[in-house]
């Protein structure tokens, strides 16, 4: 047997795959639950944004004779509330405020908390101790209590509830950002970058942010549902949005007296909160598994 051979040896095949985000999108699109939830959330957001163009009744137009009509009443597909206003219209318009106060604090807290967590996680040592112990102080209070306390200190109103909810969500996001950063910080490629002479800011920008924002983002998504419920709770207690603004928490509060008269209509705002937060939670679950590269 001779070593010489004229056979053309084909190159050993190499595993090929597309880029990271293409892969995430591909995995996400294979998850029917997550996709359904994403569609529902998208529809809710779109309907809230384009509410004035949907040809709905005026959500503020009250009518004493058409109070508390049941679902399916002619002209009012989802009935009317205790002041005779169109429930369908109020629910859709209500989505604007509810989603707004549900999302904005989380987005703000996402940026502020991530910044704290990144600095704490990368620097380690005393800076870490300083930031994280401060964060721990806020952790000592249940989030509902903290939100109520800050809101009532600041006074009622949308802006104040946005501020208080943002403060409530900074600590948990900072926590997650810190632990994600610390675990990436321990990887060899950070050492390799340091050995290449990269400064702290460059390393955070090039090598850390891209690898931690994903997990933090997923976590923040799951907080939006909590935030919506807290915002609704604040309105329910009368320290958030004020009547007659349509907002799901507030609507739940004002309709609670009608629970014996017309339970189905009274439950609608609660149902909306439930569906939205459930979808957001399942959506973040789906995102989490889609972003998991090692599988």
């Amino acid at each position: 047997m001779s070593a010489a051979t004229d056979t053309v040896v084909p190159e050993a095949p190499v595993i090929t795959a597309a880029g990271y985000w293409t892969g995430v999108l591909k995995r996400f699109s294979r998850d029917p639950v997550a996709v359904t939830c994403a569609v529902i959330v998208l529809l809710l957001i779109l309907s809230a944004v384009f509410a004035p163009y949907l040809g709905l009744d005026d959500p503020y137009k009250a009518s004493m004779i058409k109070r508390l009509k049941p679902i399916g009443y002619p002209g009012f597909p989802l009935g009317t509330d205790e002041q005779g206003r169109d429930m369908l219209s109020r629910l859709i318009y209500g989505g604007r405020l509810t989603l707004f106060v549900g999302l904005v604090p989380v987005v703000l807290a996402f940026f502020i908390g991530s910044a704290f967590g990144l600095v704490a996680g990368y620097a380690g040592g005393r800076i870490n101790a300083l930031i994280m112990r401060t964060v721990d102080v806020f952790f000592a209070f249940p989030s509902v209590l903290l939100a109520i306390a800050i809101s009532s200190a600041l006074g009622a109103g949308i802006v104040n509830s946005l501020v208080s909810l943002t403060i409530v969500f900074i600590p948990p996001i900072a926590r997650v950002a810190e632990s994600a950063t610390a675990s990436v910080r321990a990887l060899d490629y950070i050492d390799a970058a340091r050995a290449s002479g990269g400064g702290a800011l460059t390393i955070i920008r090039v090598h850390i942010i891209g690898n931690v924002l994903g997990p933090i983002f997923v976590y923040a998504t799951s907080l939006t549902s909590v935030c919506m419920i807290l915002a609704a709770g604040l309105s329910f207690l009368g320290i958030g949005v004020r009547p007659p603004e349509p907002e799901w928490g507030l609507m739940l509060n004002t309709l609670r007296t009608a629970i014996y008269v017309n339970p189905w209509v009274a439950a609608l705002p609660g149902l909306m909160i439930f569906i939205t937060s459930l979808c957001l939670n399942l959506l973040s679950d789906g995102l989490r598994s889609a972003m998991n590269v090692k599988d």
């Binding site: 060899d188 490629y189 050492d191 090039v206």
Partner: peptide, 17 residues
């Protein structure tokens, strides 16, 4: 003047670059 190659080939490359 001094560079290093680590054991874990995966952990020593930034997965997003």
């Amino acid at each position: 003047g001094v560079q290093m190659v680590f054991q874990d080939s995966y952990a020593s490359l930034n997965p997003r670059l």
